[in-house]
Design a protein around this nucleic acid. Structure first.
Length: 381
RNA sequence: GUGGGUGUAGCUCAGUAGGUAGAGCACCUGGUUGUGGCCCAGGCGGCCGCGCGUUCAAGUCGCGUCAUCCACCCCA
């Protein structure tokens, strides 16, 4: 599914939560011609759900799966691994509250990251409870924070104490970290239903090959998460660490005006994946066409078209240069073959072919060229 | 929003006490009178981010501004 990159600001405020950092200081917002506040999407889930609701795609008894991919925007100072416009792959599964979905989704994410060659990632998990049990935990946490020496908390956390105390747990400031050591642990405060759900998730994962780490301090930056949340982290992308993150968001669809359909999803940062992905060697082109005379450039274009029609990748110069220079270009382009066109060959419909790998050179008719090249590529390996 | 670094050739960077610019790579031509990789020679290429100021003179000093990078914060 593709949704617009621009939405009414209201959608994100309602979906993500108006006390989150994303909404408070990271949204790219501006008024449209009618003065309505518009926002370049900081994340994808809200737009996808809005669209599902608007087009009535959701039914109680049906599971829907979506993926989406595209640019996201956050108004913050760019740095290594963090830009104002970046790209995410998102996956959403709607319509099932089963723990099987949570695990299946993590398997899928793991499979994807493994297949593109990423290793050394840590999969962190936590359960944030639900509407029934989170308030009790929040109260317990507030009590704890009231008891500790608040002077040790950073400015942000003193504000968060009342607005969003869970975020204090996730704070990286050493003073705050120290004060959370004796703090209540969220997974100890989950209600029975949440505990059963999360235990089942952890149990299945424990019996799988996917190594995960329980991180009770993992809070995530979006308010809509419930129960299972997760983050995939790496230490190799500068000061950033998160490569992918997500979780369950039962209740969000209803909150946005749709039916009470459970859901879970994750987002994956493409630029960060690119930083971690192993370098791919440049495959090079199949054929580079060099010409002995400027008048043969159009002939080169013609042959290029024919070969491209046979699925060869072909380059040729757009301006005439010395043959030496053209051959250098052929080499630089990683061409397997260089064709060399001259006046005599053009008259007889033949071309000189040079195999750049072993330097062997021969002449073939234009008609035989594609087959000849294919043979050589298959045979010479 | 806060802090720091950097802006000089297409790229990576030098530039010495203020005297209007250099290297390597890349590119082009040639050595090889029509042929890649290595080597050699020559060449092309620069409002020294922008503006104002100091000075006889500013890439160099001062102020401002913009851009960019890194970090905080936060997240993908």
């Amino acid at each position: 599914m593709r949704t617009p990159i621009i939405e009414y600001t209201e959608l994100f405020v309602r979906g993500i939560g108006d006390e989150t950092d994303v909404v408070q200081k990271e949204m790219y917002s501006f008024p449209d011609r009618k003065g309505r506040s518009m926002t370049l999407r900081p994340e994808a889930t809200a737009g996808v759900l809005r669209s599902c609701i608007q087009h009535k795609l959701l039914r109680q008894d049906e599971v829907l799966k979506f993926f989406t991919l595209g640019p996201m925007f956050r108004y913050e100072r760019p740095q290594m691994g963090r830009q104002r416009q970046f790209h995410q792959i998102n996956v959403e599964i709607l319509g099932s509250a089963s723990h099987l979905v949570d695990v299946d989704m993590l398997f899928m994410l793991h499979r994807f990251l493994s297949e593109i060659g990423l290793t050394g990632l840590e999969y962190q998990l936590n359960s944030l409870g639900c509407a029934a049990c989170r308030p009790a935990f929040r109260a317990a946490l507030e009590d704890h924070l009231r008891d500790v020496d608040q002077a040790g908390l950073c400015e942000d956390c003193r504000r968060r104490m009342t607005t969003n105390p869970l975020r204090v747990l996730d704070c990286k400031v050493p003073g705050c970290k120290a004060l959370t050591t004796g703090a209540p642990v969220i997974t100890d405060h989950n209600c029975d239903a949440c505990r059963v759900h999360f235990d089942a998730v952890m149990d299945l994962l424990g019996r799988s090959r996917l190594q995960v780490t329980l991180n009770p301090l993992l809070v995530r930056g979006l308010d809509y998460y419930q129960r299972t949340t997760f983050e995939v982290v790496s230490t190799d992308i500068g000061a950033q660490s998160s490569v992918a993150g997500g979780g369950r968001y039962d209740g969000l669809v209803k909150q946005l005006g749709g039916p009470d359909v459970p859901g879970i999803g994750f987002a994956c940062g493409l630029e960060r994946l690119a930083m971690l992905a192993p370098e791919q060697p440049d495959p090079g082109v199949d054929v580079y066409i060099a010409v002995h005379a400027e008048t043969l450039l159009e002939k080169a274009l013609e042959i290029a078209q024919v070969l491209r029609g046979q699925r060869f990748s072909v380059e040729f110069p757009y301006a005439f240069r010395s043959l030496k220079s053209q051959m250098r270009s052929a080499n630089k382009a990683g061409a397997r073959f260089a064709l060399m066109l001259d006046e005599d060959g053009a008259a007889q419909c033949t071309v000189a072919v040079k195999d750049m790998r072993d330097g062997e050179q021969y002449v073939v008719s234009e008609a035989d060229l594609p087959g000849n090249l294919l043979n050589r590529m298959a045979g010479g390996a």
